[in-house]
């Protein structure tokens, strides 16, 4: 199975972003991170793609997860880690 493309839009001060990134790392998932606090283009892109002005936004193969939603992340990644 091809590896899923995972993007995380986050800010350095956001605890839920940290949770998402830790969770992905724990599962051994590679992801590309955008710091929307510094990268204004990434911020615009995030708002455009997700319609959201809150972080974290995780995009998994085009599917959007808002916040740290473990069950939805699991579902989109089709893996289960306790």
């Amino acid at each position: 199975m091809a590896e899923k493309k995972v993007f995380v839009y986050s800010t350095p001060t956001c605890p839920y972003c940290k949770r998402v990134k830790e969770y992905l790392s724990r599962k051994g998932i590679n992801y590309t991170e955008f710091n929307v606090a510094e990268d204004r283009n990434a911020a615009k892109e995030m708002i455009q793609k997700s319609g959201q002005m809150g972080v974290p936004v995780t995009i998994i193969d085009g599917q959007i997860v808002v916040g740290f939603n473990q069950s939805l992340l699991d579902k989109l990644l089709d893996t289960q880690v306790t």
Binding site: T11, Y16, A37, I47, G51, Q52, M53, G54, V55, P56
Partner: peptide
């Protein structure tokens, strides 16, 4: 909610720079 309304200032603050 999440489209400008937020309950976590430390999370989303920088998005509104």
């Amino acid at each position: 909610a999440g489209k400008g309304v937020t309950y976590c200032a430390i999370c989303d603050g920088p998005v509104f720079a």
